[in-house]
Each structure stands twice: as C-alpha cells, then as structure tokens.
C-alpha cells in the first residue's frame, strides 16, 4: 500500500514536470507546442553537456532551462510568430520543428543510448516501504516548479502582463503591454521548462534522441483536460496519473499506459471544460 501511494505521488510529479511547459504555452498563447517532446530531449542532452563541461549535477536542470529557453525563443521568433492566426498550422509547424531538432540532435550526439551518472541514488524508507530517493525528490521539485510559477505569475510585472494578455489581448495592448514580447517570453519559458524536465528525468530514463516522445501524448491529454490552468494540471496529474498507477499495478502496465489518453478523451467528451473550474 505504501508503495502504491508513493507510485501515485511520484507518477503524478513526473507527469506534472513533463507537462508544465506545454501547459504554459497553451494557457497563454492558445497553441499546442508539438515540439514539446523535442525540447524535453534537448534538456536531456543539455544535462549531458553540463556533465561533460563539469557543471555540478544540481545545475544541470538550470542549464537545460536556459538552453531550452533560448532555443524556444528563437523558434518563436522564426516560426511560431507567423502562425498565431493559424493555430492548427502552428501544431504542424512545431511538429516539423520537432522533427528537425531530433534529427540535429541525432547528427550531433549519435543514435545510441547515452548514459549519465545519477546525481542522487539509493533508496529511502517512507511509509514502510523502501523507495527510490530520486523519485521522491521529484515530488519536491514538482511542488517547487508550481510555487515558482505561481509566484512568477502573481508577484512580478511580467506575470501581470501575461495574465492581462491571457484575459484580453487587445485590451492589454491598449494598456501598453507588448503582447509580442509576452508571447516570446512565454514560448521561451515553456520550452525552457520542457528542457528542464528532460534534464530532471534523465536519471530515471535513457538519454537518446527519441527520449521525449513517450511523454508527449500524456502531456497533451493532461493539458487539454486542465484547460490551461496550473492548479487544474496538478489535479489532473494526480487523478489520471494515480489511475495509471492503479491500473498498471492491478491490471497490467500495457493497459496502464493507455489510461491517461483514454480517460482524458472520454472525460473531455462528457465534460468539455475538463478539470478546469472544478
């Protein structure tokens, strides 16, 4: 039982970490970043580079955040900016961007699986169960990301501008807010968070050019059901991630892998606003 509770919590944390970047972009810009998976991969390889140039492991996610953020901002300025009026085309263009990025990563780092020594290893005894310490650390990281993001949105000028753009873009422009800049920063932050997620999950997964892809569908579905709201995302991760863990444990992991996608799809059909406004 202790194991199951920890599985649920840590699964939810991993889902939250890997979807937060997508959510921020969707929430502010109302476009879906299909390059999300590629940015997770970028983060994984940024962590590898950080390791190679001798940065301490604690700084690897920060380094990934910066690399992903800069690349994301460039992508916004070159590609995404032209597609705000065509949100479905933005899906396709970011998908293409993801293909290009994956190929470039492959060309630079090779196709094989790379390996990074884990920053934290070993187990810890919680709730009467021996459990992976790193997974438990990730729960804290997820909470940290949520708090930092909430503070950014509520306590800073940038956050204020961003909320204004979310609520009413033309009015915000009328008030002198540079909405193009808000979008640039948002896309950068979203991609940066995706990359940071990549760096954070590398100790649990492999490091290869396709490493981000498995997280894509889950992230899409979770963001869709949370309708762009961060607290709703947290709730969705907990509920759907929990369901996934329960189905995996008691029924089988293959069905467990489909839980999030199927449940989210059906939930949205029955209740189009999803977990938002609960």
């Amino acid at each position: 039982m202790g194991n199951l509770i920890l599985d649920i919590l840590t699964t939810a944390a991993i889902l939250f970490i890997t979807s937060a970047g997508l959510l921020i972009i969707f929430g502010v810009m109302k476009i879906i970043n299909f390059a999300h998976a590629a940015f997770i991969t970028v983060g994984g390889f940024a962590a590898l580079v950080a390791h190679q140039i001798g940065l301490p492991p604690l700084l690897a996610p920060i380094f990934a955040l910066i690399v992903g953020g800069v690349l994301g901002a460039i992508a916004e300025a070159v590609i995404v900016r032209r597609l705000y009026e065509r949100p479905l085309d933005a899906i396709l263009a970011t998908w293409g961007l993801g293909l290009i990025m994956t190929q470039l990563i492959t060309a630079s780092f090779g196709r094989g699986v790379q390996f990074l020594p884990p920053p934290i290893s070993g187990t810890v005894s919680v709730l009467g169960a021996e459990y992976s310490l790193y997974r438990i650390v990730l729960v804290g990281v997820a909470i940290l990301i949520a708090l930092a993001f909430t503070a950014l949105m509520t306590r800073t000028r940038l956050g204020l501008s961003t909320r204004a753009v979310i609520m009413n873009e033309s009015l915000a422009q009328g008030l002198g807010i540079n909405s193009a800049r808000v979008r640039l920063i948002t896309f950068g932050v979203g991609c940066g968070l995706a990359a940071a997620a990549g760096a954070l999950i590398t100790p649990l997964t492999s490091l290869d050019p396709a490493m981000g892809l498995p997280f894509l569908i889950g992230a899409f579905m979770l963001v869709m059901v949370s309708g762009g709201s961060l607290p709703a995302l947290a709730l969705a991760c907990l509920v759907l991630g929990g369901l996934q863990a329960i189905v995996s444990t008691y029924v089988g992991s293959v069905l467990g892998g489909l839980t999030i996608a199927v449940c989210a799809a059906v939930a949205l059909r029955i209740r189009p606003e999803g977990f938002a406004r609960v």
């Binding site: 599985d7 997974r135 997964t205 490493m211 498995p214 997280f215 863990a245 995996s248 992991s253």
Partner: peptide, 16 residues
C-alpha cells in the same frame, strides 16, 4: 508484466 515499447515508467511493475 510488460510495458509498451515507448513506456518509460517501470515503477508499478517494480512495486509489484
């Protein structure tokens, strides 16, 4: 137990 080819989270299997 089996995980889909692109699955990454083995935690429930490990718990079992």
């Amino acid at each position: 137990d089996y995980l889909p080819m692109d699955g990454t989270d083995w935690a429930p299997i490990i718990s079992n």
